[in-house]
Design a protein around this nucleic acid. Structure first.
Lengths: 209, 209
DNA sequence: ATGGCTATTATACGCTTGAATAATTACTCC
DNA sequence: GGAGTAATTATTCAAGCGTATAATAGCCAT
């Protein structure tokens, strides 16, 4: 009866690995397939270790959800350049890999469905959502201002809702049925649609479309 | 040790009640809270009865998913009147109760997340999705034709994707944060945005906006 | 009114779950 | 290089899961 060998990892690394393993399990088997034992197998450790780093399973799920939201939003929120470039890159980033793929949707949907019945997850969601929409509202404000168009708070809010809705919806379609679209087709639809929504043209120079 | 009394219900009624109970459980407790015992409690029967009507729990979940999809799409797919009215009603129906509310999203997200890892549910999803988008594509074709605008297959397909994306996204926002929007605000945004996408005006006569 | 059919209840079974605790071993520090 | 520490493994536990089967009772035909 010999024990399996192991190595002692730094806390940050171990926590990271366990969260990644959790996300892998959710993407592969769904939320109900993300058991402590399955997560442990994915991470190459034994189940008991999870409780050493996370008080309960709820806790590791919350941390995992934060990571999911961060991955979905962090790159888009960090666009740089002039207003038009930032807006355009924001759109492109949200509708291409790695944000738009089936794994993203699996993870997002799993957590969203649980967020409806779990206040802690709901709070994490709202935080990420508002941050994202605020970022978009800011981008629109700067873009419209530079064009000398109406950039009132009210208009920006409405447009942010509409553009956010459009991006969410196209993201959804891309995740659910990405293979039905040609490369960059979604991005092209998004740019054309947003041009129509804003009443402005968006330069496509430098895009692969 | 006296048994509880009961009444023998017609099969169709019992199956319907059990499916409703399943949806109630999912909306209230999430998928993992929809256990056969909890479903039975909601339906006012005992757990064993579920297996009398559904071979496995998988089966009742599949039936329940069909009901969810039907509720999300059936009313919108049955709009009547001239092309403009049909298109407008399609939009309104999708962005107001009972399609747009938090319960709808809870149910939808729960099943979508599971559909990613369950082929049977994935098939049910795709069937419903394609039907919905085809209906929209038809509406757009009729609407654009009547206006004498370009209604080519390629353009209708692109517009259907964009409009579907917009509706999905606004639906999502309405479900997730309905209380952040004023009454009919989402519908108004949708109509304005779709006018921009189509390059056509949509008469709002008869709407409460 | 009653006998038979079957919808329904009741109970049990084997498994898996999240969690708790005890035993061990890899690594740090002196 | 040996002792101490705590990260990790191993084991256990009660609860809840889906499923299976036996017992019961509501209801319909006669």
């Amino acid at each position: 009866m010999t024990r399996r060998t192991f190595h002692r990892a730094p806390e940050a690394e171990r926590r990271h690995d366990l969260i990644e393993a959790t996300l892998d399990c959710i993407a592969e088997f769904g939320l109900e397939g993300a058991t402590v034992r399955q997560i442990a197998v994915k991470a190459g450790v034994t189940a008991g270790l999870i409780r050493h780093y996370f008080q309960t399973k709820e806790h590791i799920l919350q941390e995992a959800y934060r990571v999911v939201i961060a991955r979905l939003t962090e790159k888009a929120e960090r666009v740089t350049g002039d207003p038009q470039t930032r807006l355009r890159d924001f759109i492109v980033i949200n509708l291409t890999e790695p944000v738009t793929n089936s794994r993203s949707l699996s993870l997002w949907a799993a957590f969203i469905s649980r967020a409806s019945v779990d206040p802690a997850l709901a709070a994490i969601h709202r935080e990420g959502y508002l941050g994202f929409r605020d970022a978009l509202e800011g981008l629109l404000h700067d873009f419209l201002s530079e064009r000398g168009a109406d950039a009132s708070k009210e208009r920006c809010r409405h447009l942010a809702i509409a553009v956010n809705g459009l991006l969410d919806g196209l993201w959804l379609e891309g995740c659910l049925a990405g293979e039905l679209f040609e490369k960059d087709e979604l991005v092209d639809i998004a740019l054309t649609s947003i041009e129509a929504l804003l009443g402005q043209t968006i330069d496509r120079t430098g895009l692969s479309v």
